[in-house]
Amino acid sequence: MSLLFVGIDPNTGDKQSPTVWVDQKNKEIVFQGWKAGAELEAECAACDVPGHAKGIPEGEAVVRIPARMAHWNHFAGDGSSTGEEITDDPAAARLCAAAFEEVWSRAVPHERYEIR
């Protein structure tokens, strides 16, 4: 596995270390976080997720990472970066999710996409 270190929570000291890597070989993001307790696992397992069965599949786990580790990258209309923002505000996450869903609802399905 070829892990590329992305970041670590700077506020957890030397005893804990929520960490993020990129597995370059498999093109996946790898999270190390705090193990979820039984109550949170049960809540996640009971959630209705469109297109998925309830439960936590074999081989998957629920972990926690601090919201402060979420970085928001901002881009201008021409695609250039306008910088990043770090926030743990739940309203920012909801706004981002809503914006994503709105844009996604207008997207062209992959099978119909044509490069012109």
Rank of each mutant, 00 (worst) to 15 (best):
F5T: 02
E101A: 08
L3D: 05
E114Q: 15
T12D: 04
W104I: 08
E43Y: 09
V22H: 14
A70I: 13
L4A: 05
G7W: 08
K15Q: 07
H110V: 13
R64D: 04
G33D: 01
S81I: 00
H71V: 04
K27F: 14
V108Y: 11
A61V: 05
D48P: 05
I115V: 13
K54L: 12
I115D: 06
E58L: 03
H52D: 10
S2H: 08
H52C: 06
E39G: 11
F5S: 12
P10F: 03
P10Y: 11
E111F: 08
P50V: 13
M69Q: 09
F100A: 10
A36D: 10
C47Y: 10
A93L: 05
K54N: 00
D88E: 14
A70G: 01
A91P: 02
M1A: 01
W104T: 07
G13I: 11
C96F: 14
K15N: 06
A46M: 11
L4P: 02
D78F: 01
G79Y: 14
A67M: 13
A92T: 00
Q24Y: 12
A91T: 06
Q24H: 10
G51T: 14
L40Q: 01
A93Q: 12
D89P: 05
D48F: 13
R68H: 13
A107C: 05
V30A: 01
P18L: 13
V103C: 12
I86N: 04
A53V: 03
P90N: 15
P90V: 09
R68N: 11
E43S: 03
L40D: 10
G7A: 02
A93P: 02
S2Y: 14
R106H: 09
E41R: 15
D9V: 07
V22L: 07
E101N: 08
R64Y: 07
A45F: 01
Q24K: 12
T12I: 00
T19R: 08
G33H: 02
L95H: 05
R64L: 07
G7R: 15
R112F: 04
R116W: 10
R106M: 12
Q16H: 02
A92N: 11
K27P: 08
A36Q: 05
V49L: 14
I65W: 09
V63K: 12
E43Q: 14
E111T: 09
A98G: 02
E102N: 11
P50G: 03
P18I: 05
V103M: 11
L3K: 07
R106Y: 09
K15I: 04
P50E: 14
R94Q: 08
V49A: 06
N73V: 11
E28Q: 12
T82M: 06
H74N: 06
M1R: 08
I29G: 06
E60A: 04
P57L: 13
A38Y: 11
A99E: 13
I65Q: 01
N73M: 14
R112C: 04
E102R: 09
L3E: 07
M69N: 06
W72S: 01
R116E: 04
G55L: 07
I8K: 10
M69Y: 00
A97L: 15
R112M: 00
T19V: 00
